[in-house]
């Protein structure tokens, strides 16, 4: 981990102004931001740990907890909302027995609602590991979860 983070910090010339992009890249590598990683960023970038922690907890994109194999991002834009997203949120929370923003115990799914993805013609839209699923309904959600469950356990 130490070398990975050192390389990322050096990519940005150890410039303190790039704390946000550095954390973005670290999270991309490690899937989340463990405590150890925050310490290393603080050390290499010469920014206090309190500032690293402030930034890591302020921005939505950062997670201090491990994330699931399938990261399900359900769009919460206004267009998706008026087309029935709240019903799908309830359904996923009920089915996976987790709340918005949580990860299942087996680290299979992370479910979160996200700000507008700008694919409004496809609303309600859900992105699973960068793949778009459009015009979602409760029935389509069930189908998708079934498929992911099979793939994930295979």
């Amino acid at each position: 981990m130490e070398n990975t983070i050192k390389a990322i910090v050096e990519k940005y010339d150890s410039n303190k102004g790039f704390l946000v992009p550095v954390l973005q890249d670290v999270q991309k590598e490690l899937n989340y931001l463990p405590r150890e990683a925050l310490d290393l960023v603080s050390k290499f970038l010469k920014v206090s740990i309190s500032q690293v922690f402030e930034v890591a907890t302020f921005y939505k994109a950062f997670s201090l907890e491990p994330r699931g194999k399938y990261q399900m991002a359900l769009c919460q834009g206004t267009a998706c909302h008026v087309r029935g997203v709240p019903l799908i949120v309830d359904h996923i929370e009920r089915t996976l027995e987790i709340k918005d923003g949580e990860t299942t115990e087996d680290l299979m799914y992370t479910f979160e609602t996200v700000n507008c993805l700008g694919a409004c013609a496809l609303g309600p839209v859900m992105v699973v590991n960068e793949e778009y699923h459009g015009k979602m309904t409760i029935a389509k959600t069930d189908k998708l979860l079934k498929k992911l469950g099979k793939e994930g356990n295979a």
């Binding site: 946000v20 992009p21 954390l23 302020f58 994109a61």
Partner: peptide, 25 residues
Amino acid sequence: INRGGGAFVCGESSALFASIEGRAG
């Protein structure tokens, strides 16, 4: 280029500057 961290308030000018400077927005 500076990539945002996913905070709506960073569209506000002074929060955006804070974010570019590497602080909370």
